[in-house]
Each structure stands twice: as C-alpha cells, then as structure tokens.
Amino acid sequence: MTLYLMCFALLLIGIYGIIVKRDLVKIIIASGIMGYASNLLLILFAYRKGGIYPILEKGKDMTGRVMVDPLPQALVLTSIVIELGITAMLIALAIRIFEKYKTFDITKIRRLKG
C-alpha cells in the first residue's frame, strides 16, 4: 500500500514535470520518469512475499519454492523498449526543434497558435 502510493506519486511527479516545465529536455526527462513509475507499479503488483525469480535452475529442487508472477515482467520488458523508442524519437524531434529555433525553451517556441 505505502509502496503503491509512493510509486503513484512518482507517476504524478512525472505528469507535473510534463505540464509545468518549459524546457524540452526537462519534458523528455519527465516523460522518462513517468515511464519508470508505470513499469515499477506493474512489477510491484507482481511481487509475492518470499518469492524468488521465475527462472528454473539445473539440479535444484523447485518444489515448494514460491515464484513471483512472471507475466508482468514480460509486459514490462516490452514497455521498457517502448520507453526507449519514445525517448529516441523525442530526442530527434528536440534536436530538430533546436536547429530551427535555436532554443529549448517552450515559451519561445510558439509559432503555432492556440
């Protein structure tokens, strides 16, 4: 419960950063933080008290050993890759914006109305 709430707070900090910050690099960082929080939340949901990692080992008797939920780990593996993809695209966009406007400040990048 405490952990869930702390993780949720991390998510909200990320959203706060995206909405309030005016610097493109800071916005990219904030979106990264949001990604960490959602991944961590999934893995927190998967943990079992006293569980071990879901990998079988040769020669060890696995009967009676509790394993954590492997499915969210598979999902998060996908989600991390997606995070990396969005980071790469945002960086590429930010570089081009810098090339065009010579600034990272979002208040000075306001050619579009509305």
Partner: peptide, 19 residues
Amino acid sequence: GLFVVVWSLAIFRFFEGGD
C-alpha cells in the same frame, strides 16, 4: 537499430549544422 540511431544522432550536427 540502436547503433544506427546513435550513429545518426552523432553525424547529425556535422552534416546539417545542428549547432
């Protein structure tokens, strides 16, 4: 894929005058 991305980010500034 990742190497190509980094490589393009690296050459970008030199070919198109990023800064």
